[in-house]
């Protein structure tokens, strides 16, 4: 029993690990127009906090950057990103801390200001779309994804096909899709299928 407890064989795997090869074929088939990549899991907490109180400033000091104040925007902090999900809700990620440490670190500050942070590292998984990302996503998403209305620094919770997603704009040709693990395969297959529309056609 003691042996079994010491044997920590549970390592996180990406929910789309078995589709890694399929996603990689998209770059070749679209002649480099679109590239789909899986992103490594990160520590993430859901932060609930009164936006009018002293909490946001205190959390900002603890993570090293201001929290995004406008609806549907995100900001980078030294080890990750802060995304505003609602009036009193943020998603804070970190690539440096473990999930346990990140939850403890943020919750300790939030709790002192009447808020709370809960570990949601396993709640979403991440896909990165580079190249003609906006064109590709427009096949299944009703948002106006043109750079003028969805510029870098914006994020949005919306629907991609039938699945709820959190879209994050990094650049004109660089979008990130955060999706529930159980919907991730559906979204991946939807994107691979839509990418077929971007395959260059031979001129007759």
């Amino acid at each position: 029993m003691a042996d079994r407890m010491a044997d920590r064989t549970l390592t996180p795997t990406h929910p789309l690990a078995d589709r890694r090869g399929l996603l990689a074929t998209v770059a070749d088939e679209t002649a480099g127009a679109v590239r789909l990549e899986l992103e490594a899991p990160v520590a993430a907490v859901d932060l609930r906090l009164d936006p009018r109180g002293t909490g946001p400033a205190a959390v900002a000091a603890a993570i090293g950057a201001a929290l995004p104040s406008a609806p549907d925007t995100w900001t980078a902090h030294p080890t990750g990103a802060a995304l505003r999900l609602g009036p009193d809700e943020w998603l804070l990620t970190s690539t440096a801390a473990s999930a346990e440490d990140w939850e403890f670190h943020v919750d300790e500050v939030a709790a002192a200001h009447g808020g709370m942070a809960v570990d949601v590292s396993a709640q979403r998984t991440s896909l990165r779309v580079r190249g003609a990302a906006r064109e590709l996503l427009s096949f299944g998403c009703a948002l106006d994804l043109r750079p003028a209305s969805f510029p870098a620094g914006r994020c949005a919770q919306t629907l991609l096909g039938q699945s709820g997603v959190l879209l994050v704009a990094h650049d004109v040709d660089d979008l990130q899709i955060l999706v529930r693990p159980s919907f991730a395969a559906y979204v991946a297959d939807l994107l691979v299928d839509a990418a077929g529309e971007l395959v260059p056609q031979p001129v007759p």
């Binding site: 609806p71 609602g86 009036p87 009703a142 948002l143 919306t158 629907l159």
Partner: peptide, 11 residues
């Protein structure tokens, strides 16, 4: 009121 105009299906 928070996100702005979105498609009816999201509600």
């Amino acid at each position: 009121p928070w996100c702005g105009p979105r498609e009816e299906i999201e509600f």
